[in-house]
Computed example of a mutant assay.
Amino acid sequence: MRRPGPSRRSRALTGTVVLLCAAALTGLVGCSGESDAPSDGAGKASPAPEGDLAGTVVEAVAETRRTSARFDQEITMSDGKQTQLLFIKGDFDMAGDMGRLTVEIPEIGGARAEELFVAGKVYLRAVKETAGPWGYFDRNKSEVHLPLRAPMNDPEHTLFQVGMAKNVYYQGVEKMNGAPAKHYRGMLDHLAVSLRLGKSQQEDANRERASRGEDVPVYADVWIDEAGRVVQTRTAFDFGDNTTTVTTVFSDFGKPVKVTAPPAAGLATLSPVPHILTG
């Protein structure tokens, strides 16, 4: 059977990626806007288990969110003609809800942004030859605009999302960070995939789901170490020529993380429009 071609939503998402790439550092700081607070926010609630193995993943997510870690994330997005890579890295105290990270797009002249998570805010500035002004978002009001991205690249969102995996199966033991880790694979349903989507993107996702009559297949892989912590996640979908893969590695658990908010003087407000650097 011939695989169906990309839908209008898929083509729209691809077009959004290309347009955002072309203006990766333009208009990053602008006028503020308001949106309804998403349901999960930065809270510590965990998704409900779905069977024994799904429960194992939920428990590992909860254990990981009780500590701090270094994380390294690689995102690959492709429309079959062009592939876009993003690299995100930083340190995050998930128990204390604070952290710092950088996000880079090597293909766009070294486009880079820095982010600070502290006291319920996300502070962001673009960096090219020099650092731009800091702006900020309310963390709980930040949204997702591209498939499988996290709002403002929040690593806790990534953990929360994989904790919603269903039909989870054990895949075996593999080496991660030089130590054995148990590999589990499940599927993310429509609710998990559309978590924290902006209003227009949510409407598109709902129409896509309705037209298919079933969820777009999205895989979630989770690796758990002997201490019961998540050491790697991978989420991926393959829909025609459109693919996205997000791989996140957690390491150096328990390391101290200290973050200080930028001075209030000179702070700008951030526009809520979609932007490839911020998800």
Rank of each mutant, 00 (worst) to 15 (best):
L188E: 01
P151Y: 11
Y219F: 10
R209C: 02
N242C: 10
V249W: 06
T260A: 07
S194I: 07
N140R: 15
G240Q: 02
T248W: 09
G186Q: 06
G198S: 10
D154Y: 11
A192H: 08
L159C: 01
S194N: 14
Q161P: 08
T247D: 00
S211E: 15
E156I: 04
D154V: 06
Q201I: 08
I224C: 00
R207N: 12
V246K: 06
Y169V: 12
N140S: 13
V216K: 04
I224T: 03
E156G: 07
A150T: 13
R149W: 15
F239T: 10
L197M: 14
R207A: 15
N140C: 13
P147L: 14
Q161L: 10
P180T: 12
T235E: 13
G163L: 10
R209N: 10
M187A: 12
V162R: 06
R149H: 13
D215S: 04
K175I: 11
P217F: 00
R212F: 01
P155E: 01
A220C: 05
D252H: 14
A181I: 03
Q232C: 08
L191I: 07
P147M: 12
R229T: 02
D189A: 01
V144C: 05
Q202G: 11
G254N: 10
F253D: 07
S211N: 09
F239W: 09
Q171T: 02
M164D: 01
N140M: 14
L159P: 03
F250G: 01
E214G: 02
